[in-house]
């Protein structure tokens, strides 16, 4: 599980584009495209700005009226997916 104060950064060579239902990340190195849903797109934008896990959770909590435990779980899962796809450094 990621620590709350870990500062996230996007790996170099990635281009993000916001879409109407989420976003799209173009990996110039691997010539791969990742499509994100709305939550994952927000998490990505916050990671790319160098935010910590706690800041990401706080931001999502203020944007969506959802239970905090659920938000923490969603954010952890999204961050795990990003790390697993080698999108973060």
């Amino acid at each position: 599980m990621a620590k709350d104060n870990k500062i996230w950064r996007a790996r170099k060579g990635l281009a993000f584009r916001k879409l109407v239902d989420g976003g799209m990340l173009f990996d110039q190195k691997g010539q791969q495209v990742h499509h994100f849903n709305e939550t994952a797109a927000v998490v990505w934008e916050l990671c790319a700005r160098g935010q910590t896990t706690a800041e990401i959770v706080a931001r999502l909590r203020s944007a969506y009226e959802v239970d905090e435990t659920q938000i923490v779980a969603d954010v952890q899962e999204v961050l795990k997916d990003f790390s697993g796809s080698d999108l973060l450094q």
Partner: peptide, 17 residues
């Protein structure tokens, strides 16, 4: 529609790169 939309987004973005 979502599949088509995402496919165009991907193809167009890749083509422009």
């Amino acid at each position: 529609l979502r599949t088509e939309y995402r496919a165009w987004a991907t193809d167009n973005f890749a083509a422009l790169q």
